[in-house]
């Protein structure tokens, strides 16, 4: 397999909340074009890991390097390359979709002349073209989720980090988000956390299972599924108490 460009390198990061450790010594890399599925039971540290990679919180030890810039030393350079969708959707209810996307685009440092083009492009991708003037507070859960994804991709970052993008959606909406992600994987690397194993099987190239703050599995999906075991039984085995 030919070497692909290294986009994210997570090096030995640990983080605790007070005395309770959330993640311990996590190390992994992501290359261009990869879709990484982050799995694990509730409270395993998935969200913590994602928040550290996107610079929302900082690790107690270890380092995160994004496209060649360390997130602690050069946060502005590093963060330009990330689009992050947190589990709680970061939406302002009193803005319209257009206002919100223009604001997030500017926050991500897009030049004035490109903004309109980029916002329109990401609205088209997320199926929001005809809803620009709708107030966010009047949107359904599925639409809110789409706006959430839209703010993460508006600046076309090389890396998109999505924390449980399909939670709370109906099957139809889940399919929509999935096909959107199939579209996105063409030009972005994606880190995705989820509870739904079939979602990982459908979308990811690589699986990372975290349990109690440690990585218990880091394999390519193809290799993993050549064995007899299904992803579900592997998951159950590895996260057994």
């Amino acid at each position: 397999m030919k070497e692909k460009k290294l986009l994210v390198s997570v090096n030995n990061i640990s983080r605790s909340y007070g005395k309770i450790p959330a993640i311990e010594n996590i190390t992994f890399d992501i290359h261009r074009g990869e879709v990484l599925g982050l799995l694990g039971p509730n409270g395993a540290g998935k969200s913590t890991a994602m928040q550290i990679i996107s610079g929302v919180i900082s690790a107690n030890s270890g380092s995160v390097n994004i496209c060649g810039s360390d997130i602690q030393d050069f946060p502005k350079l590093a963060k330009k390359n990330i689009g992050f969708l947190s589990e709680q959707l970061p939406l302002y209810n009193d803005l319209t979709i257009d206002e919100y996307l223009f604001y997030t685009a500017k926050l991500r440092g897009i030049k004035k002349i490109d903004i309109e083009k980029k916002v329109n492009f990401c609205k088209k991708r997320c199926g929001l073209e005809d809803f620009g003037s709708r107030l966010i507070q009047n949107l359904s859960k599925g639409f809110r989720q789409r706006v959430g994804v839209a703010q993460a991709i508006v600046h076309t970052p090389p890396i998109i980090i999505l924390d449980e993008p399909t939670s709370g959606l109906d099957p139809q909406q889940i399919l929509e988000i999935r096909s959107l992600m199939q579209e996105l994987r063409k030009d972005h690397s994606i880190i995705l956390s989820t509870h739904i194993l079939s979602e990982v099987e459908a979308m990811c190239d690589r699986v990372l299972i975290i349990n109690k703050g440690n990585i218990v599995l880091d394999r390519r999906l193809k290799e993993l599924l050549t064995n007899e075991d299904s992803l579900e039984s592997i998951f159950m085995q590895l996260t057994k108490k």
């Binding site: 928040q51 996107s54 610079g55 929302v56 919180i57 946060p75 502005k76 350079l77 963060k79 330009k80 990330i82 992050f84 947190s86 709680q88 959707l89 970061p90 939406l91 302002y92 209810n93 997030t104 926050l107 991500r108 440092g109 703010q151």
Partner: peptide
């Protein structure tokens, strides 16, 4: 409360 602080913290602003 809205969770938008995560948007701000993950954006390239200090």
């Amino acid at each position: 409360q809205l969770g938008t602080i995560k948007l701000l913290f993950s954006s390239p602003i200090s």
